[in-house]
Structure formats: C-alpha cells, structure tokens
C-alpha cells in the first residue's frame, strides 16, 4: 500500500560541464530502466535543466560521467547529495547505485509484482463537475471527500479505491469522473461527446445498486445464506450464495468480481451509504449557503 512507502529519490542525469555525455543508446536504456523501477529522472544538459528547482521537492541522486573526479554537491539545505560516477558502469550497475542510495526505504514501484500498488483512483474533471456529490454518496470506501475551503468535491483517499473498479464514473451525470488507466473513453479521459452524456448505459442508477431492490435482495439473500449456513455449517456455501447474488451487480456496472466479493455485509453497506449521503448533503448545503452569501453581498 502506498501509505507505507516513501517517495523515491529523483535521479539527475548530469551531462553538463565536467561530465561527458552518455552514448544515446545507453542513455535510452538507462532512462527506461530507472523509470520502470519507479524513479523520476531529470536530464541536465548545456543550456540548463528542464525546470526551476528552487523548492527541490524531492531528494535526489546525481549520475554522471565525471572521469573519476566526483564533485562535492550539497542541496539547498546544505545536505550532501549522492553523486555517482557512472563512467565505467553498465546500466544495471548505474541503477544499482541509485537503489543503494535509498538505503532500503520502502517505495512503491512498478516492478514489485504483487507488492505494487497500481495507481487506480478517480480523477475529477473540474470543468465538468457540478458538485452534485452523487459519487460521494455512492462510494463505500471513503475515496471522496469535500474540500473544507470551498465545499467542492475532491478525491481525498485515492489509495482506498478498488483497483480496476470504475463504478463511480458510471453514476456521474456529467461524465466528470475519469480513471486514467481505464482502457476506453471517455472514462480514460478521452473527450466527452454529447452521445456519452446521454448514453443511459453509461450510468447505473444509484438506487438500483445500493438501495431499493438490490439492497433488499442482498439482505434477503444474506438471510437465506445465514440460514443455510446454520443448517449446513458450510462457509463455502454461504460465500457461493453471496457471489451468485453479486454477479448481477458485476454485470450491470462492470465492477470486478473481487471488488464485489470484498463488499461488507448489507447492513454495513446500508450504514456507509447513509454516512456518505449525510456528508454529501452537508456539502451541498454548505455550498448553497456560501453561494447565497456571495449573492447577497
């Protein structure tokens, strides 16, 4: 999980004064290797770096071909910076030098297999969002919140989002919720057409998902499963029953099965739904109040 990791250091590939440039092919391989392990890279060349680093938001490591004379470099706070001469290093060895500079601190990385947190979460198109808060009401995982400054919707806890689940984007009436790593538009961020906005199949009625018939059916099935469980004493049978019930939901909203399997009990869903609805209503009231005050003044 991303919360348990620290930001990786940024790598500065220094090809300025006192450093010989890399061979272009080697540069390509080194850049790809660093990026695919989760490191951002700045290339500094004659004429300047790509941006102003006045605030130096991240710790960094410098790589260059210094001909054996490694410069002594300190950051703005006077701390020594890791500088490595990669003149005689292979790409793998240069990457290893960067890895060493992390001193074993955990970082999220693309090449960590099952330990990787895939950055999957909703992104709001603020030009389209009307702050209706339907998504906030819909989400059971506290992904959404409200900005205390202006009572607008915001993505508060992106790491809470269920990977590969785009369900909340389908309840947005303005097609304002994107998942940049989704496979198709407009959910992936592609331009929104009028047809998208009006396409009923893009939207799933919240009441159908979380209230009304489906919730009643979940509760009913849950009770049946509990009853059967008590008779058969089989957890597997109860789980299978729950899965059967949720299949319909998965088909309706393209929600991954594992997400539905991980849903809490119907009672907990109901409690969370009520809490989310309360937050959404409070946010709408606050916005209306603020708007009213602005109009009066």
């Amino acid at each position: 999980m991303i919360a348990a990791t620290v930001p990786p250091p940024r790598v500065v590939l220094y090809e300025g004064a006192g450093s010989a440039p890399l061979d272009p092919g080697e540069r390509t391989r080194l850049l790809a290797a660093l990026l695919d392990r989760g490191y951002a890279v700045t290339r500094a060349v004659p004429g300047g770096a790509a941006r102003d680093d006045a605030s130096a938001a991240a710790a960094f490591v410098v790589l260059g071909r210094f001909g054996g004379t490694v410069p002594d470099v300190h950051d703005a706070a006077g701390r020594p910076v890791h500088v490595h001469d990669i003149g005689m290093s292979t790409v793998d060895e240069a990457v290893a030098l960067v890895e060493e500079s992390r001193a074993g601190r955990p970082m999220n990385r693309p090449d960590a297999g099952a330990a990787t947190w895939k950055p999957w979460f909703p992104v709001i198109d603020t030009a389209r969002c009307t702050n209706c808060m339907q998504c906030l009401s819909f989400c059971l995982f506290d992904v959404y919140g409200v900005s205390p400054a202006d009572h607008t919707l915001r993505v508060e806890n992106p790491a809470n989002c269920k990977v590969n689940c785009p369900a909340c984007s389908r309840v947005c009436p303005e097609v304002a919720i994107m998942f940049p790593k989704y496979h198709a538009g407009p959910i992936d961020g592609a331009p929104v057409s009028d047809a998208d906005v009006h396409r009923e199949k893009m939207k799933v009625d919240i009441s159908a998902l979380l209230g009304g018939d489906i919730l009643a059916k979940l509760r009913e099935r849950s009770a049946e499963a509990k009853s059967r469980f008590s008779k058969e004493r089989s957890a597997d049978a109860a789980l299978a029953e729950r899965r059967r019930c949720l299949t319909k939901l998965a088909d309706a909203a393209a929600i991954p099965r594992e997400v539905l399997d991980a849903l809490p009990t119907p009672e907990e869903i109901e409690r969370r739904t009520a809490e989310a609805a309360r937050k959404a209503a409070a946010a709408r009231d606050a916005r209306e109040h603020a708007t009213g005050r602005a109009v009066q003044s």
Binding site: R10, Y14, A17, G18, A44, V45, A56, V62, D75, A76
Partner: peptide, 9 residues
C-alpha cells in the same frame, strides 16, 4: 558540448 552545471538546488 560544454555547459554550466545545473544541479538542482
């Protein structure tokens, strides 16, 4: 080619 050092501050 030559350049001025541009290491982040």
């Amino acid at each position: 080619g030559p350049t001025t050092p541009q290491v982040p501050a």
